[in-house]
């Protein structure tokens, strides 16, 4: 029974739940906020209470049954197989987990999944239009703006928002407004060049 399951098994169990819901083709409307409460009694006893939530990720509604402790980052990576967003520090210090919520860049490692229901989440997987890469993705390739690539999804999501915010006016401004994204390989000069290039293309289109 559930008492003998460890956390990992519980988590993978909920992946099946999601898949089943997806296969069943359940039409998910916008769930109201009230649909989301966890089971207080169970949580108080220390057992992993589940919250049923609907996350809108990359334009698709996904039904998840998750422990309220699950961060958006873990929900994406462990429950939806969207492993593009990376876990660097898990404490808001590196930017590798950057995604957009309602169009604004945020850190998914410090965001609870239960808290973003009803909001539009965009990850690196949702940035391209089919096989056509986003200008920012293309520019990162053209400028060789990475080595190991671990920070890259976060850099790109952050960079797209940086341009939209109007904070990519000069190399100095780009460096300041991209300072929340660390790159252990120190690809910084090429990242700045890629963002300037993509900014010009994004502004043209």
């Amino acid at each position: 029974m559930s008492g003998t399951l460890n956390r990992r098994e519980v988590l993978s169990g909920s992946v099946l739940g999601v898949a089943a819901a997806g296969l069943g083709g359940a039409a998910l409307g916008a769930a109201g906020p009230d649909a989301v409460a966890a089971t207080p009694a169970a949580a108080a006893q220390g057992s992993p209470a589940r919250a049923e939530i609907v996350l809108r990720v990359n334009g698709r509604d996904r039904l998840l049954a998750i422990d309220p402790r699950t961060t958006l980052l873990d929900a994406l990576r462990e429950h939806m197989a969207l492993t593009g967003s990376k876990k660097g520090c898990d404490h808001g210090q590196c930017g590798a987990c950057t995604v957009h919520v309602d169009g604004r860049r945020v850190l998914s490692c410090l965001t609870l999944a239960v808290a973003v229901q009803g909001k539009a989440v965009t990850t690196i997987e949702g940035l391209s239009a089919g096989d056509r890469l986003h200008p920012m993705q293309q520019a990162f390739i053209a400028h060789d703006a990475f080595q190991c690539g671990y920070c890259t999804p976060g850099q790109i999501m952050s960079a797209v928002a940086c341009v939209h915010e109007g904070h990519a006016g000069s190399p100095a401004e780009i460096r300041e407004y991209m300072s929340g994204n660390l790159c252990r390989c120190a690809a910084y000069p090429n990242i700045v060049a890629a963002i300037e290039d993509a900014r010009n293309q994004m502004e043209r289109s």
Binding site: R105, L107, L110, T111, A161, C162, E165, H167, G180
Partner: peptide, 9 residues
């Protein structure tokens, strides 16, 4: 303070 992502949140 902090970073652009943190300031949004």
């Amino acid at each position: 303070a902090a970073s652009a992502q943190l300031r949004n949140m």
